[in-house]
Structure formats: structure tokens, C-alpha cells
Amino acid sequence: MKFGVVLFPGSNCDHDAYYAVQANLGEDAALIWHESEDLSGLDAVLLPGGFSYGDYLRPGAIARFSPVVTAVKKFARSGGLVIGICNGFQVLVESGLLPGALIRNRNLRFVCKTVHIKVVTSDSPFTNASKTNQPLAIPIAHGDGCYYADKMTLRQLENEDRVAFRYCDTVNRVVEEANPNGSLDNIAGILNEERNVLGMMPHPERASDSAMGSTDGLVVFQSMKATLMGTAR
């Protein structure tokens, strides 16, 4: 099983994602250069965090034009698993693979800390190894992580069970105080209509190794692995 970790100029969580897949999940990983249009041989694609193309204009706005994103779209259309983390989520939103937008944090400051999120649906290739309502302690690190979408989109996400994660407090309540960036409905991660593309602001690769304090993020990669092996619940 092979995960492709896309490397844009300015990606900086590529090494971390690569390490989490190889060392913590125990699967193969390869770095995919942003000019590559060839994703053959990959079972899943991961768009990592960072500042692709310097986040010039808007986070993800330039990355959407890169050759690799064209290939990622094709990969997703054919049913491949695609996960975008942090800047990767922003790229997925900008390139139209996921709805809505990620705008500046409400307090206008970058924020890096461990937050709590809860799994809203375990019915996805990225969460099937977890339980619905399971709380996860996972770090965030972003300046533009406020999820925004129009009412209709929000309702659609809700009705189609496509909200993957919401920010919650330490006792698993989805409350405003637990919302670190102003995201509508405390949304921390969403799925596409076909459920094979996930975008999330929290960094599961930073919570995949016991040395880092939490291994709660590993469940995302384990779910993907189970899906790909056909052993998902």
C-alpha cells in the first residue's frame, strides 16, 4: 500500500506526513513533486500542511493551478482516497474538490495548540476505525482555518452526513468556547459527496506518535488503511 504525499513549493508538513505514514502507520509513502501529473501506483494521496506557493493571494489559490492538482482531481474522480490537511484542505477547497472556503481566523491571529475534535461520522474511509462521537486530541496550526459556507451548503453537508469532525471541548460538547478559529458550526473537517475526499484543519500526523503526546490522529490513517485493505467495518 502506498500513500503519495504531495510536495508543493512551500509545503512544510510533508516530512511529518511522510513520517507518520511510514513510521507510525507502517505503510509505504512517496513524495510527489508539484509538477508531476503521474499518480500511478498510489493508493491514496495526501496534501500536506504548509504554505504552498507562499500562500500568495490566498492559501491554496495558486496551488489549484499546479499540474499535480489536476492529477489529484482525476485521481479523486476515479474514486481514489484524497486527504487534505490544513493547507491541503485549503487547496482542496480552492480547487473545488470540497465546498465552502477557509478564511482568516476570527481573532486574526495564527493559532497553534492541541484542540479537541469529535468524530461526527464514522461512515467514511477516513473515520471508519473510530466511533461516531469519539473525541480526539489533535493539534491545529493555522492562520486561515475558519470554515465558511453558505446556508444551503451547510445544510447539505449536514443532511448528507458529510461533516467529519467538529471542534469540541474537553468533555465532548460542541460549544463556541471550543471553536479556535470561528468556523461555522464548529466544522473542523468535511467530506465530498462521494466520501472519498476529506479536508481537515487539524493535523493528524502530529498526533500519530506517542512521543508527541497524543496518538489520536492515527485513527485517520488507520481508517484509510482499513478501507484500502478492504477490512473496514
Binding site: C13, A20, F110, C112, H203, E205
Partner: peptide, 13 residues
């Protein structure tokens, strides 16, 4: 320090 990414590279124990 919450404005600084103090975890990137997943080495900060």
C-alpha cells in the same frame, strides 16, 4: 507562543 507553530516537524516533545 500560541501564535508560533511549535510542533511542525513533529519533534517537539
Amino acid at each position: 507562543f500560541e501564535q508560533y507553530d511549535h510542533m511542525v516537524r513533529t519533534n517537539t516533545t
